[in-house]
Computed example of a mutant assay.
Amino acid sequence: MNVSEDISRSIWTLPAGVQYTLTSIQCLMVTATLLGNAGTIVAFYKVRGLREKPSDLFILSLSCADLLMGCVITFTVPTYALGYWAWGKTMCQLFAALANIAVIAGILNTLMICWDRYILISKEYPKYVKIQSQRRVIGTITVVWVYSLVTGFIEWVVWDVVKVPETVYEFDFTRECRSPPKHNFVFQTQAFTRNVFLPLLGIEGLSVAFVVLLRRRLHKRMQVTDFEFSNTQSQQLQERSDQPGGSSTVSRCDAAHTSMSTGGSTSGHSRNIGTDSTNMPVNARNAEHTSSNPKNRYVKAAITLAALVIALNLCLLPFLLYTLYVSLVCPTCSDRLIRDTLSNIFVPLNSCINPILYAVTMSKIKRFYKRLFGLNG
């Protein structure tokens, strides 16, 4: 196929209804992505508690990558509306570079979140806090962004400076935005393996390892709790039997415990039901126990991690599977509309969904939005 035929196939000729539908979807995605991620960043600025835990800075970094993706896809809205690229070669180069940076930074930040959760579940909490210090977390985020910037602009350098053999460069950039390096099989394969395949493999592996270790830890915790409860009950019974009255005291205590469990209402119960032997209200003690319960800490981390990984897979895998199918199985089956729809709608959709997941799974961000919209009452 010659260049002119390739260009003519790349320019969209869509029915008006499909074209307007895709444009409307893009507009909604841009609005939701920009507002949602900007809201998350403002929440980190306003809510001090979000900045106290160093690992939460990975969420802030991921929000910045998603916000950049929202800025990038604003370029595609006129493209869907007009049916062709109207920004020229320089803006096409900038668009390609920023898109690469946003995608790479998003995947790597998700990988770092998975790595953080793996350390959380594989180490005891004091050791985890020592490993994931604020200085180390900030250093990791800096490395992620430096790598993403360098890798994203390499394509631009290869595009303009290095003329790679067997690469098509003669595109009409007043009608379309095509990246010549991506038409070189070797460059495309290396970039995909290094920036997408290997990080995704790490994300899946760390997620599975986290789930396995979480089940082991919770099972072990349950066994230890049952053992401690049994010992406590035995000690209490022994102490009561040593008191004057002996077994009759134990019997009265057991009867009182049974009555309270079945909803009995004596005057003694009404005095004691709100407090325990430490004179602390039961609700306050339960809250204190919940806040310091390792099970809650691990489960909350698991919920956030699962939501992010599932959303990433649902949005990214369709495009990757289609690209692999076209590249390895059926090169003649490539369809520009399908490929661009997957890359310009499904892939950026992840950046639109992530802020919603933060608001649902992270209590501090949820409370921030409730205060913002006056929903506390």
Score class of each variant (00 low, 15 high):
residue 14 L to W: 11
residue 22 L to R: 04
residue 34 L to G: 05
residue 38 A to M: 10
residue 39 G to P: 02
residue 40 T to P: 04
residue 45 Y to N: 14
residue 48 R to K: 15
residue 51 R to F: 01
residue 53 K to N: 14
residue 55 S to Q: 08
residue 59 I to E: 03
residue 64 C to Y: 11
residue 73 I to H: 08
residue 80 Y to L: 12
residue 82 L to M: 08
residue 88 G to N: 06
residue 90 T to D: 15
residue 91 M to G: 00
residue 92 C to M: 01
residue 94 L to M: 09
residue 96 A to I: 12
residue 97 A to C: 11
residue 102 A to S: 14
residue 103 V to P: 08
residue 106 G to E: 02
residue 107 I to S: 04
residue 108 L to Q: 09
residue 111 L to R: 10
residue 112 M to D: 06
residue 113 I to Y: 03
residue 117 R to D: 09
residue 118 Y to A: 06
residue 124 E to L: 08
residue 125 Y to M: 10
residue 136 R to W: 06
residue 149 L to G: 03
residue 150 V to R: 11
residue 155 E to R: 04
residue 156 W to H: 05
residue 156 W to C: 06
residue 158 V to F: 13
residue 163 K to Y: 04
residue 165 P to K: 02
residue 168 V to Y: 00
residue 173 F to E: 02
residue 176 E to T: 14
residue 177 C to E: 07
residue 177 C to R: 02
residue 178 R to P: 02
residue 192 F to L: 07
residue 195 N to S: 08
residue 196 V to M: 02
residue 196 V to N: 00
residue 197 F to C: 13
residue 198 L to A: 14
residue 204 E to G: 11
residue 207 S to V: 08
residue 207 S to W: 08
residue 211 V to Y: 07
residue 214 L to V: 02
residue 227 F to Y: 10
residue 234 S to F: 00
residue 236 Q to M: 12
residue 236 Q to Y: 07
residue 244 P to S: 07
residue 248 S to V: 04
residue 254 D to R: 08
residue 272 N to Y: 08
residue 280 M to N: 12
residue 287 A to T: 14
residue 287 A to V: 13
residue 296 N to E: 03
residue 297 R to L: 15
residue 298 Y to M: 07
residue 316 L to R: 00
residue 323 T to I: 08
residue 328 L to C: 13
residue 329 V to W: 07
residue 332 T to Y: 01
residue 333 C to T: 06
residue 338 I to Y: 02
residue 343 S to V: 06
residue 345 I to W: 00
residue 345 I to C: 05
residue 347 V to T: 12
residue 363 S to Q: 11
residue 370 K to G: 05
residue 376 N to R: 09
